[in-house]
Simulated scan of single mutants.
Amino acid sequence: MLTRKQHELLCFIHDRLNETGVSPSFEEMKDALDLKSKSGVHRLIRALEERSFIRRLPNRARALEVVRMPERTIAPPPSSAQPSPAPKVPVAANDSVIELPLHGRIAAGMPIEAMEGQSSLSVPAALLGPGEHYALEVSGDSMIEAGILDGDYALIRRTETARDGEIIVALIDDAEATLKYFRREGQMVRLDPANHIYSPQRYKADQVRVQGRLAGLLRRY
Rank of each mutant, 00 (worst) to 15 (best):
R213L: 14
S120I: 06
Q207M: 09
A32S: 06
S96A: 11
V210Q: 09
M143H: 11
D192R: 08
A75N: 12
D95H: 09
R62N: 11
D174Y: 03
A107N: 15
N59W: 07
V169S: 00
V66N: 02
H14D: 02
R60G: 04
A114T: 08
C11L: 07
E166F: 04
R62P: 03
T161S: 09
I54T: 01
R68M: 12
M69A: 06
G21R: 08
M115C: 12
Y153P: 01
D173A: 06
A63R: 02
A107M: 03
L171R: 14
A63P: 05
S199N: 05
I167P: 15
A86C: 08
E137R: 10
S39M: 07
E50V: 05
G165F: 05
L127N: 10
A108W: 08
G104R: 08
A114P: 00
D150R: 06
A215G: 14
E27L: 11
M69W: 06
N195K: 14
P76S: 07
L121Y: 08
D141P: 13
G40Y: 06
S39C: 01
H103R: 13
A47R: 07
V123R: 15
M115E: 15
L100N: 05
Y134V: 10
S23E: 01
M1N: 10
A215I: 00
R190I: 13
V97T: 15
E50I: 10
